[in-house]
Amino acid sequence: METLRFLLKKLIEDRVALLGALLILLLIFTAIAAPFLATFPEDIAEFHPPNRLIAPDGTFWFGTDRMGSDIYSRILFGARITITIAIIAIGVSVIIGVPIGLIAGYYHTWFSDLLMRTSDIFLAVPQIVLAIAIAQTLGPSIENIILALSATYWPFWTRLVYAETRSIQKETFIEANIALGASPIRVMFMHVLPNISSSIIVRTTIGMGGTILTAATLGFLGLGAPPPSPEWGRMIAESREFLPEAWWYATAPGLAIFLVVMGFNLFGDGLRDILDPRIRRSVRHDD
């Protein structure tokens, strides 16, 4: 409770991080309230060819696309897809990556090396390429995007947790608890993990931005949810043939991706400053 209040206070002081937090909150709010905010909620699936490619006006706030659907409404529902992909993919990565890093860092045996080399192999393969391979083999769908992202993202958490575990292991209180008779599981999950949690939280927040960007890229390449799903990356891909005349077509989803990724990055940087003062963002000097 105190920690939460402290966090909130620090966050309000840090304007940039606050902006990030607001952007994230906006995304979440949009995703939840999409059916109420959308002006044409049925346009996700319905086509109105007579209305195709209308520039933004009072009725169609962000204009319409090649099928005559309202882009504003589609963006709102796209937020749901984006947030689902990001949360599940990151969640799976954390669930896989953190325990592996913890075990590999805690024990000093050949098994730790095996785990770390495995994660190195995953890191060595370019993310997008592996994701394309998975999505291509299993067919384009949201589930496969999530699978592809999870499979490529977990090593980042493994590496982070491994390094942090190794360094915190040298602290006396870890050794003292082992000497006291605490089991390895107890030491790992009750002493090591809580003491490195801030780095994990920071990494996860920043990772969200990266995941959303990669998900949009996969969508752009046509590997995400099949049409007519209002996936932001796919919307940009569709808009290419109508540029530059239908400038609004690419602008809205582009801006949405930009703002959301920026939101997570700013918030992550701010959190790092608050939780992990060892690595500070460069401080601007007033002249």
Partner: peptide, 21 residues
């Protein structure tokens, strides 16, 4: 574990043997 109840070690800096969190 059973014996470690009977035999205990006090660190040079016992403060550092406490979890800061």
């Amino acid at each position: 574990r059973r014996l470690s109840r009977q035999l205990q070690y006090s660190y040079q800096d016992p403060g550092a043997s406490l979890d800061p969190r």
